[in-house]
Write a protein that binds this DNA or RNA. Sequence first.
DNA 1: GCGGTAATGTTGACGTCGTACACATTGACC
DNA 2: GGTCAATGTGTACGACGTCAACATTACCGC
Lengths: 215, 215
Amino acid sequence: MGTPPVETIAGRDTYRHGDLSRALVEAGLELARAGGPNAVALRAATRRAGVSPSAAYRHFADRGELLEAVCSASQARVALAIEDEQALIPDTTDALALARLRFRAVGTGYLHFALAEPGLFQSAFTASTDLESATSAARAGASGRTPFELLTDALDGLVAVGGLSAERRPGAEFLAWSAVHGLAMLLIDGPLRALGRDRAETLIHRVVTMVEQGL
Amino acid sequence: MGTPPVETIAGRDTYRHGDLSRALVEAGLELARAGGPNAVALRAATRRAGVSPSAAYRHFADRGELLEAVCSASQARVALAIEDEQALIPDTTDALALARLRFRAVGTGYLHFALAEPGLFQSAFTASTDLESATSAARAGASGRTPFELLTDALDGLVAVGGLSAERRPGAEFLAWSAVHGLAMLLIDGPLRALGRDRAETLIHRVVTMVEQGL
DNA sequence: GCGGTAATGTTGACGTCGTACACATTGACC
DNA sequence: GGTCAATGTGTACGACGTCAACATTACCGC
């Protein structure tokens, strides 16, 4: 007799959670959105998932591994933002103009995401990542490409239509990335934090133009 | 009778410390050098200063204020690095060439410091700072100018000798800073972390050139 | 169907951190 | 010389990451 213990464990009727790994990453994303990478705490994430702190260790070796998963998920969102920006480009028969617009959209999409979701943006790129992992599937958007790959694609597209000489192509992704990433950091974290939306937009346009001309 | 308590408190014979504020900042700098801004812990700093944790609160409102002081000190070192780089420029009568070299030295000094002292560099610029505080005396080098001011000086110098049109001058500091700061981040923290010294040096040269041409 | 095993979650503990409060010590000034 | 403000100490609390021992359950071969 006696009623069986339904919901004895907060928000859960079974002993097993079911999909804790994903739940922790999603909780981590919320924490990152609100407070950046430093706010991604193991205990806070497990609390949100309705699970005891140690449970996280069945899925992640330590906090760093959870943070890395959150980082990958954040990068995937950056990729989506870039793809969205590229999708706004009107149809054109001018291949060169199109390639240029696609290239610019990488930068503007990147920067608009940084402004719209500073916490996620910081988590995406301040948590340490190396070049190999910058091209891993977990960080890709709808097209299956990571932000870094979307950038190299755009540069290759420029070369294909003569918008960039092949001799200047090698390493160009790092030049472009540096400029755009740096502006993002200054706008979010740094001395340009207090800049108004309009001024920020102007700067974004100028930086992307500088890259286009300076490559 | 009985011997008076000499050195009862670790590394100190008096109850008062004497210069705790400075000692804490210096301890904080060591921590930052070794582990970046996240490693700047109040308790660790007080431990190194041979003082109890609460003592720090007589000089800093909270950890954030200590971190900010460490940040200022780190920026002062960046300024010194830039000044050192500029001091290496050989004498020339060609005013334009000199202005260009002085401008480039800002970028290369900045980036060389980032590579040589990544922990300090991160602490200098990731701990949030706004534009007003980017021009405060605590962050200045030997010349009394902050890194940001050294950059604006170099740009003004370029305009003065015709190396940059006056119409392109406004906001140019942000373009230049973005590119250089972004590369620093990618080299230290980001995907370019594993790059060799030579490749990094090549990239540094190219980014500075891109800025020069793209301004 | 049944029992064992591996996967998954819980409990309790330890050492770290930031911070607050009450208390102790001391230099400096009337 | 006594008082006061400045400075440092001790103790405590809650949050954090992490570990080891234990509990519960899904699944797989019999």
